[in-house]
Design a protein around this nucleic acid. Structure first.
Lengths: 123, 123
DNA sequence: GAAAGTACTTTCCTATAGGGAACTACCTTA
DNA sequence: TAAGGTAGTTCCCTATAGGAAAGTACTTTC
């Protein structure tokens, strides 16, 4: 008889694990946090604005990631009736609920850097 | 003259973005959150215990991810002087500070599932 | 009519992530 | 001496992520 899981085998744990996988699959990749963070700060931004704000991203990735985020209802895309057409990207009400998650992650990262600095005397 | 970033160009934003990248690179991959979550719940666990607890992981990934986490001081590895040698994995004090981050991520994922269920009548 | 700005899409390429299966090595029990 | 448990490592493979560069299409400005 094969031994079975004992810790993660409770319904509460299963739901938690599933929830973590869900969140991380929605926010996966190198750029989603940066895009969401920028849109939370910047309110309404055009494609080229985002391209300039997010250091290092290219048009292909920005376009693809924005589509992903739009599909998951975290970002609004609105085509404006201007002379050269412009597009307004903004965070949705639902996307804004990610702020506490992003804050915790940023907070932890800042503490992490501090602790490395103190321990190793580097950087 | 090329237009420059205005939102993300403040020192505070740069540090925040860097911190998010740091955290996500440490916790990147399919399994790190599961391993850390299990170790927080389970206290001290052997390699085979983790293999059984974490549904779907194989020996190769578990071994590699544990090495990553150990390198980043989030997990302790202690070889025990038992008859067949056993290894005790546990979360470090520092690794335990990830609990609030994991909690926020889990909380958001649970709300996300709820909202999809309400909106679409799907799972 | 050429340049430059809007917003993308497409193609091509490489690097990394991650899985399966087999293998190592050592010890205990039947 | 064969089976089964400990804890991994190694090899081979595929799929995905992500970057660079060029192309599309349309408009305004010089």
């Amino acid at each position: 008889m094969k031994k079975k899981s004992v810790i993660n085998d409770t319904p509460v744990c299963q739901i938690r694990m599933q929830a973590i996988s869900d969140t991380m699959s929605i926010l996966s990749g190198k750029w989603k946090f940066h895009i969401i963070g920028t849109l939370i700060e910047g309110n309404k931004l055009g494609f080229m604005d985002l391209l300039r704000e997010i250091d290092g991203i290219g048009t292909k990735m920005l376009s693809k990631e924005l589509q992903d985020l739009e599909m998951n209802q975290l970002v609004n895309r609105k085509v404006m009736d201007t002379k050269p057409i412009t597009v307004e990207y903004s965070i949705t009400e639902y996307g804004a609920t990610l702020a506490p998650v992003i804050n915790e992650i940023a907070k932890w990262g800042i503490e992490y850097r501090k602790s490395i600095f103190e321990a190793d005397g580097e950087q």
